[in-house]
Design a protein around this nucleic acid. Structure first.
Lengths: 294, 294
DNA sequence: AACGCTCATAAGCTTCCCTTATCAGAGTTC
DNA sequence: GAACTCTGATAAGGGAAGCTTATGAGCGTT
């Protein structure tokens, strides 16, 4: 059985005869006869009584009409479902992001994208280090990725679009060591107690680099959950080096944020597979790059 | 788009890869690749991200899964619908019948058939004269026909099966001219007022034949609606010649029924198209002939 | 670094579908 | 009632589409 055969069958029913149906379907009449014969052979039942002049539906033929229409409709539905995704009337876009960048610039990006394509939902897939993001994009776990790196961009593995830079800032308790200051030099971090993130993150790479420069500090805590950084700072465990994506959040939480001099920053990149992207991903990329260049 | 392509697509989704799906569908892997490529070309959207090793569903692919399953199911449903008719689990059988024969023997036949195939409904299509029945069967308006004839069976046009004979009886009012009698000779009908049916019916042919024999009577009324015969008799308009299919009905209605001598009868035949019949019609024929020969 | 597994591509063959041409039956018309 | 017309079936040939085997390319694994 075949959709083509069912369409032919319905055409015969609807147009009331093989010849008229053949004209309507722009095929020859023998093609119709053969298709119906094939269908009847396949189903094991005659669909029409052939009575010289006219073809009359059999009971089996009558029983087939409605299911056949349903089958034809179901193909149209399938096509429409795919079209809806392509035309961004619905669907879903997975974006892998490291935690800090999930705060900014991802929030802004999603907001802009959501305004243009309200039917498409964006899912933030959790990645924790740059490598996670690259791998998720490479393997297709997410179609786009947002990462931060202090080193070179992974241009060889994925397509990279620089969307901004985030400078490092120091978060301290409001009544902590840097109260009243707007900036500190990195050398001033010596002998302080630091709360740091997981290896592989941009902020950790920066901190490790400071230590290699000979700035001696203590690592008071290391957390894989960035959300715990600020509470740790506020409870007096130590100070933390984070990117200024956290500035607003930290200040609202009651922490004191100061710039670290000389300015040092992470590159923030939106990455994607090298081959053809889905329409949603393309548009998201366009939205995001448009915003950053504007 | 094609059901085959959707089945292949679903196989890939369900088996998690082209190779496994190809094995499961007993086709070669390139056949699958080509089918999916054709589907993607047709839909205008990629369904899988090809990432060297693994094929990952795109958003469009995800959107296609459910509609594709529905489409595949719809074909199975269509097949099942036809099967149900063939296996006589449901369906409908049209039987054309003249009015008298619709009382008997059709009622008995339908009862026997209904007991064996409760899912199949039998529709009685109204015919009024023998020719109507033959035409309806010939043109497919009904698949079977039940007719009565005093002449030869229409063997040339349809397949005929003699299922019985109905003798002619006279229906008179309870207080009418034949009260107390069990039979009358046909000559006694002379000078009586008769209520007759439409030309072309068996009872009318018999009455016309009596007149040709020189038996002189008056035609008090002619009706195309046989149901009005008995009321006319009961109201004293005249007497009526009908077949003994009506005996029970007439007596229950309060009329007096007497045999007409010498016995004269109509042949009752079940007729059908000459070519292959539907399973329901075949079974009905089998039931009916089985009953009459038993 | 070599191997193995993934899916894509290429080329040949088979199959199936559609075409034109013709036939056969039944209704219609003169 | 004979010719005509309209119905759908049948026959034969050409072309497209699908499946096959063989091979290639990319990526992960040993």
């Amino acid at each position: 059985m075949d959709i083509r055969q069912l369409e032919y069958f319905l055409a015969i029913v609807d147009h009331g005869g093989f010849n008229r149906a053949a004209s309507a379907m722009y095929i020859s009449q023998p093609a119709l006869s053969q298709a119906v014969q094939g269908l009847e052979r396949d189903l094991g039942s005659a669909l029409f009584h052939r009575m010289g002049r006219r073809a009359v539906l059999t009971e089996a033929g009558t029983a087939l009409i409605e299911p056949a229409r349903a089958a034809v409709r179901s193909l149209q539905t399938a096509r429409a479902s795919v079209d809806a995704v392509r035309e961004l009337r619905c669907g879903r876009l997975d974006v892998a992001s490291m935690p800090s960048q999930a705060v900014e610039p991802l929030t802004t990006m999603i907001s802009a994208f959501g305004a243009r394509f309200p039917g498409v939902s964006v899912a933030i897939k959790a990645a924790f280090i740059t490598r996670d993001v690259v791998d998720m994009v490479r393997t297709g776990a997410a179609e786009l990725g947002l990462l931060a790196t202090s080193g070179p961009l992974p241009e060889r593995e994925v397509a990279c679009h620089l969307v901004g830079r985030q400078r490092f800032v120091l978060v301290a308790a409001a009544d902590g060591p840097f109260t009243g200051r707007r900036s500190v030099s990195r050398e001033e971090l010596a002998r302080h107690r630091l709360i740091v993130g997981q290896r592989g993150t941009g902020m950790r790479a920066y901190v490790d680099e400071l230590r290699e420069r000979g700035i001696a500090f203590t690592i008071a805590a290391e957390t894989e959950h960035r959300v715990s950084l600020i509470p740790l700072v506020l409870s007096g465990v130590g100070v933390a080096v984070v990117t200024d994506a956290w500035r607003t959040v930290a200040e609202h939480a009651g922490a004191h944020v100061v710039d670290i001099e000389p300015e040092s920053a992470l590159d923030i990149a939106l990455v994607s597979r090298r081959d053809e992207l889905s329409p949603a991903a393309k548009e998201f990329l366009a939205c995001a790059l448009d915003d950053t260049t504007r």
